[in-house]
Computed example of a mutant assay.
Amino acid sequence: MPVPAIVWGVLELVALAITLHELGELAEELYEGVEKYGKDIGKAKEEVRKVIQSIQDEIAQKIEEKEEVAILLALEAADPQGQNTRKAAGRGATDATINAAIEQKIPFRDAITQVCNAADRVPVWSLRKKKGVSIEDLPKARRKVLEELLSKSVEQLADVEFEEFFVIRLKQLAANLLFEFVDECLSWASPLKCEVNFGPPPSFDDHPVEGATKLQRLGKINPFYPSPFQYQKGSISADLMISEYRHQRPDKGNIFAIVEIKFQGDRIEAAQFVAYNQMLRRAALVKTERAVIRFQNKPVNSGGRLSLFRYPEDIAVHGKNEPDKSSEHEKKEEPKQQKSEKSSGRSRHSRKRGI
């Protein structure tokens, strides 16, 4: 029986999901270009070594905790936002909650920009499906893995325009791999933590850790899939969390900012930011409970900042006369963006569930 076209579409999505630090045998059996993609990720990692240095320059390795938040506040105040960001202009700037997230100043915009630049340059079509290969041709164990993923995704992805979704998914995955690489190089004490998961409300349970600061990853195919709270309704996954104290566990009581990263073509939905704000209100209660000393016994009124980083609109910009780099990029990507806006909203939810 021939494999339906929709199933092949999901297989291609799954193949992108299994592009991890070292691509496995499953990808090699289904796809050509695996070796090249692996090398491309390697080159991207070399690019972000300067990001690692920039983080070390901004926050010394042995910084005192009492100084760390003050330095984050100083970096936030000096955030090199561009015009699109300061005025909440362009993609997604239609809702008050989203506008506030766009305009929110954050530290490390330079570092985030450099990582996203590297992820954006990774060729998105390195992988090509091998002709004549079907699910039935795969060994039983590997076929079972695919079937388990497919059983949870075919219905959800029925209306998704796969081509555009693949590009977004691959860039998001590349960015995650690079942020995780930065964290590893900093002995898992980077203030930038990617794919931080929180359980469903009202408690929003914290992401499990290994040791003091390393986030637990359960995925054998994709390090970020499944997440610890994968199948719990209402759970959320932050693209990036900036910790107040990078040598402490990245949990609700240690959030300086949540940064949602959106590459071009990815949907921006107010409901997602409402969920983040709900979690941050819970984080404020946790911080209040932990506070040994409170000014006039007042509770902590914020669990952290909430920022939307749209790539490339919100990249770091330095100098008053520097041209807006996002404009040229947007013109090149305009046909792709118009196509994406016609896509089903299910694509974003599928990505956030790790499919």
Rank of each mutant, 00 (worst) to 15 (best):
E334C: 14
R49A: 12
T19Q: 15
R217Y: 11
S307A: 15
R246K: 10
E161Y: 13
P335F: 07
L280N: 03
A96Q: 13
L170D: 12
A275H: 11
G345T: 09
L173W: 05
P123L: 06
Y37W: 14
E180Y: 13
Q53Y: 10
E322Q: 13
K62E: 15
Q337M: 13
E334T: 10
P208T: 01
Q156N: 03
A119H: 04
E147S: 00
S126G: 09
G234K: 08
P228A: 10
D40W: 15
A74S: 09
E25F: 06
T288Q: 03
W188D: 02
M279Y: 04
E136V: 00
I293K: 14
I135G: 00
V145I: 10
K87L: 15
K131L: 03
E260L: 09
A119K: 03
R246G: 00
S134G: 08
I52W: 06
E76N: 04
T213G: 12
W188E: 02
E163Y: 12
V292Y: 09
V292W: 08
L240M: 11
D266Q: 11
R282K: 04
L308M: 04
K43H: 13
A174H: 14
H21S: 15
Q53I: 07
K66P: 03
I6L: 10
E334M: 14
P335L: 07
K298Y: 04
K66N: 13
V34W: 05
K131P: 02
K87G: 12
C194K: 07
I106R: 08
L20T: 15
V160T: 06
I41V: 15
T94S: 13
V167Y: 08
V124Q: 14
S302P: 07
Q264N: 15
V167S: 06
E32G: 09
K262E: 01
N254A: 01
E147R: 00
A101D: 06
A111T: 05
S344M: 03
L215P: 01
I6E: 10
G211F: 03
S343D: 09
Y31N: 10
E65D: 15
E58H: 10
G253L: 02
E210C: 12
E65P: 15
D95M: 07
L26G: 05
Q248K: 15
G24T: 01
A175C: 09
A158Y: 08
K140Y: 07
V292F: 13
Y37I: 11
F256I: 03
E22T: 15
V7D: 06
S243N: 05
K325G: 09
R353F: 05
Y225W: 13
I59Y: 06
E148D: 14
L186C: 01
S340G: 07
R109Q: 06
L26P: 02
